[in-house]
Design a protein around this nucleic acid. Structure first.
Lengths: 349, 349
DNA sequence: GTGAAAGCGCTAACAG
DNA sequence: CTGTTAGCGCTTTCAC
C-alpha cells in the first residue's frame, strides 16, 4: 500500500489552538518560552493538544516571523579530514548545547567554492557562520570572501574564522608558530642536526606559520637556518608522501623530518617505508595537530597537540555573545614526544 | 569604530522590486526560475537592481511560502569517527550537487538523543533526513524513533537509513555479512586456525552481521564455529583496545584477530604492542571498513573496503527521487589483504 | 505579459 | 492574562 506521500500536512499552530479551544497567541505563548505567562490550565490544554496532533513548530516560519534563526553555518574544506572533522565536531556540539542547529558546507579546498558557500548559507540567515581553514586564495577571491562576510555581518550575522587569521572578523587561531618553535627546540637540542620541513602549499598561512616557527626554534639550537630544506606540497596525506619522495630522491638523507601536519606526516612515513626505511629508526618524523585517529600509528608520532574541538566550541561561544569589536582568541598547542623521534624523553609511548 | 551590529537589514525582494520599478511578482519571477515568462528588459532591470542591492533571497521565507525547503538533514553518531565522516561527506557532496543545504546533528551514540534530533530536524521541514548508524536501542526507543520518522514521511518528508536495516524506510545497507564471510574464508584457507572476534556491543546489528558472517565463513574452511571466541566491547578504538586486552589475559594467544571495524582493529594493535607483541608477526589482525585515514597504519591493515561515501550519496539520490515503495539498496564490500595478515597473497603493501 | 492581493505558519505589538 | 491583528519575506493564484 505504498507510503502516504505527503498526505496529512503537518499540524500547524492554528490547528493546535483550535483543538485546545484557545487563541493563536495563547497557543504560541504556551509552546515556546515566551516572556509572558499563561494560565496553567490553558497551558496544559495546549500542550495536550499539541501532543495529540503531533505538532512540531515550523522553524522556518518562526524564523521569518522573528527575523532571526537558530541556525549556525559551518564551512570546512573536507569533513573527511580528521582535522576539520574534530573542529566541526566541536562546533556542532556547542551549537546543539546552545539550542542551535548546524548547517554544513564543504568547499573541497576550493576558495571560489568557499565564497559560493558563504553566499548560499547567508540565504538561510543563520545567526553565525564559522569558516574553518586557512586562506590559500589570491587577493581577488579573498576580497570577495571578505565582502560576503562583511555583508553578512552588516545584516546582523556574525562571522567567525577558525585557524585563518588576518581578516577583520572574530578569529580563533591556534598558536602554530609557538608550537612549532617549541617542537624544533626540543628536537634540535636532542641532537638532530639535519632537519627537513615538509610544508603545505606556499601561501597557506597555517603551513607558513608552522614552518617559520620550526625554522626559528631549530636555529635557536645552533643549526643554521638556511641549511634546512623546505619542500612544499599539498596539505594532505598524498602531499606528505610525495614531498617525502622528493626529499629522498634529492640530496642526503635527513635525520629528522617535520611535516606541518599529522596527515602529511603519516604520508611521509608511508613513503619512507616504501623506500625501505623505518620511520623513527632510520629517519625521525614529527607532525602537528595530534589527530585522535592517528594516535595509534606506529611508531607513535611526535607532534603538537591542538585543542581542535575546543576551537570549534569557542567559535560558537563567540557567535552567541557577539562582542562589539572583532576579537582574536589564540589557542596554544602542547608538544607530545613519541617514539617517532627517539632521543628526547618520551612523554607517551 | 566597532561593527555595524545589525544595521542595514538585508535587502528584501520588495526593495529590489521598488529599485527596479516593477511589481513584487515580476521581481520574484525574474529572480527565481518561475514557469512564467518575463519580458527580457524587465528581467535585466530586476537582475541589475538585485546585484546593486546585494540581494540574497531569504530561503526561510521562500520555504514558508512554497511549503517546502531545500534542506536535507543528516544524523550521525560521531562526526569525528572517520566511518561517519566519510558517509556524511558523501551526503553533503551529493546534497550540494543537488542544490540542497545539509543540516547536521550528532547523537553521540545515544539513541534517545537520536530521537530528539529527528524531532528537532523535523522542525526545519527538510526534504529528507538521512539517519546513519545501526540501532542499539531497546524496542521502546526504537518505536519512538520509528514513529518520528513515520510522522516525518506522512508530512511529506523522506527518511533514509544508512547502514541500519530493518525499519520500514528506504535503506542503504552495506553487505556486512558477505564481506566478513569472504574475509574469513580467505583467512581460514590461509591456515589461521585459532581466530578470535572482537565484536561491538551485542545488539548492534552492524557488529552482529559482521560477526556472523565471519563465523560462518571461517567454519566453512573447516574450523569448528564454536571454537572461536567472540568478545564484545564498544565500537570504538578504546573498545578494541580493551577487548584485545581481555583476550590476551584469558586463555591461549590467538593467531588471528578479527575486529569488526578498522577503528577497533587499530585499538587492538595498540594493545598487542603494549603487551610486547608485534601485530602481523605474532598475531595477525584484520578489520572492516577500510577507513582512508587508516590506510597507512603499519603493518597495513587487512580489511573489507566499503563504499562509504557512495552510500551517503546514494541516500541523497533516494531522497531526490522518492520511490513509492520503501526500497533497500545493498552495497557490497571488497576484501583487501595487507601485511597485518601475512599468508594470503597481499593485494597491496 | 504584468500587477494586486491573498496567503504560508508564526510572532509580537496592541487593546481589552 | 488573553485574544485580535498586523506584519515577516516570498510565492502564486487571479484578474487585467
Amino acid at each position: 500500500m505504498g507510503r502516504d506521500d505527503g498526505r496529512r500536512p503537518p499540524a500547524t499552530l492554528q490547528d493546535v489552538a483550535r483543538e485546545a479551544g484557545v487563541s493563536l497567541a495563547t497557543a504560541s505563548r504556551s509552546l515556546n518560552g515566551s516572556a509572558r505567562k499563561v494560565r496553567e490550565d490553558y497551558r496544559a490544554r495546549v500542550l495536550a493538544a499539541a501532543e495529540r496532533l503531533n505538532y512540531a513548530p515550523n522553524l522556518q516560519a518562526q524564523a521569518v516571523a522573528r527575523g532571526r534563526t537558530s541556525l549556525v553555518g559551518i564551512i570546512v574544506s573536507d569533513i573527511t579530514d580528521p582535522y576539520f572533522a574534530q573542529i566541526a565536531g566541536g562546533v556542532i556540539a556547542a551549537a546543539e548545547a546552545g539550542g542551535l542547529v548546524a548547517t554544513i558546507g564543504v568547499s573541497g579546498r576550493d576558495p571560489e567554492r568557499e565564497v559560493q558557500l558563504v553566499a548560499a548559507l547567508r540565504g538561510q540567515r543563520p545567526t553565525g557562520i564559522v569558516l574553518v581553514g586557512s586562506r590559500v586564495a589570491d587577493a581577488a577571491v579573498t576580497a570577495r570572501l571578505e565582502a560576503q562576510l562583511r555583508d553578512f555581518e552588516n545584516e546582523g550575522g556574525h562571522a567567525v574564522l577558525v585557524s585563518q587569521a588576518g581578516l577583520p572578523f572574530d578569529t580563533i587561531a591556534f598558536d602554530n608558530e609557538d608550537g612549532a618553535r617549541a617542537l624544533a627546540r626540543r628536537l634540535g637540542a636532542a641532537g638532530y642536526a639535519n632537519a627537513v620541513v615538509l610544508a603545505g602549499p606556499e601561501p597557506l598561512s597555517t603551513s607558513r606559520e608552522r614552518t617559520e616557527g620550526f625554522l626559528d626554534g631549530y636555529a635557536s639550537t645552533g643549526h643554521p637556518r638556511d641549511a634546512v630544506a623546505v619542500v612544499h606540497s599539498r596539505f594532505t596525506r598524498d602531499g606528505g608522501y610525495e614531498a617525502m619522495g622528493a626529499v629522498l630522491e634529492s640530496g642526503p638523507r635527513p635525520d629528522v623530518v617535520f611535516a606541518v601536519n599529522d596527515v602529511m606526516a603519516v604520508g611521509a612515513m608511508a613513503r619512507l617505508r616504501a623506500a625501505g626505511l623505518e620511520p623513527g629508526r632510520d629517519v625521525a618524523v614529527a607532525g602537528f595537530d595530534d589527530i585522535e585517529t592517528l594516535r595509534d600509528v606506529s611508531p607513535g608520532l611526535t607532534t603538537v597537540r591542538l585543542p581542535l574541538e575546543q576551537g570549534g566550541a569557542t567559535a560558537v561561544d563567540l557567535i552567541l555573545k557577539r562582542a562589539s569589536e572583532p576579537c582574536l582568541v589564540s589557542l596554544p598547542g602542547e608538544i607530545v614526544i613519541r617514539a617517532s623521534t627517539p632521543g628526547p624523553a618520551a612523554e607517551e609511548a
